[in-house]
Simulated assay, not measured.
Amino acid sequence: MVEGSQLQEAQAISVVHKMLQQSFNLFDTAFSAAWDTTLLKQLHTGLLEQLADLDDCWQQVTGEEDSALGRTDPTQPVTSYFQGIHVYLNEKEYSDCAWEIVRMDIRRAFSLFINQLAR
Rank of each mutant, 00 (worst) to 15 (best):
M1E: 08
V2S: 04
V2G: 02
E3M: 03
G4H: 08
Q6F: 10
Q6P: 01
Q8A: 04
Q8P: 01
Q8T: 01
E9L: 09
A10D: 07
A10Y: 09
A10I: 00
A10E: 07
A12Q: 11
I13Y: 10
S14N: 06
S14G: 02
S14E: 11
V15Q: 04
V15N: 02
V16K: 12
V16Y: 11
H17T: 06
K18W: 07
K18P: 03
M19F: 00
M19C: 01
M19L: 05
L20E: 07
Q21L: 06
Q21F: 03
Q22I: 00
F24S: 04
F24P: 02
F24Y: 15
N25S: 08
L26K: 02
L26A: 04
F27G: 02
F27A: 00
D28H: 10
D28L: 03
D28G: 01
T29F: 14
A30S: 11
A30M: 09
S32C: 10
A33R: 12
A33F: 12
A34E: 10
A34D: 11
W35Y: 15
D36G: 03
T37F: 11
T38A: 12
T38H: 13
L39R: 14
L39H: 13
L39Q: 14
L43Q: 05
L43I: 01
T45N: 05
G46K: 12
G46L: 06
G46M: 07
L47N: 05
L47D: 05
L48A: 11
E49N: 13
E49L: 09
Q50L: 02
Q50C: 00
L51A: 04
L51D: 05
L51I: 08
L51V: 02
A52T: 11
D53H: 12
L54W: 14
L54D: 09
D55N: 12
D55S: 11
D56L: 11
D56A: 09
D56W: 13
D56T: 08
Q59R: 03
Q59P: 00
V61M: 11
T62R: 15
G63M: 08
G63A: 06
G63V: 04
E65P: 06
D66Y: 13
S67T: 08
S67Y: 15
A68C: 08
T72I: 06
D73Y: 12
P74G: 05
T75S: 15
Q76Y: 14
P77M: 03
P77K: 05
V78F: 15
V78D: 12
V78Y: 15
Y81G: 04
F82H: 02
F82G: 06
F82Y: 09
Q83W: 01
Q83V: 00
Q83G: 10
Q83C: 04
G84L: 03
I85Y: 09
I85N: 03
H86Y: 13
V87Q: 15
Y88T: 02
L89D: 12
L89P: 13
N90S: 12
E91M: 12
K92W: 13
E93L: 08
Y94K: 05
Y94S: 06
Y94N: 09
D96A: 07
C97M: 10
W99C: 07
W99Y: 15
I101Y: 15
I101G: 11
I101R: 15
V102P: 02
M104H: 14
M104Q: 14
M104S: 12
D105H: 15
D105S: 10
D105P: 06
I106K: 10
F110V: 00
F110Q: 02
F113S: 08
N115C: 07
N115D: 14
Q116G: 05
A118Y: 15
A118C: 09
R119Y: 14
R119T: 08
R119M: 10
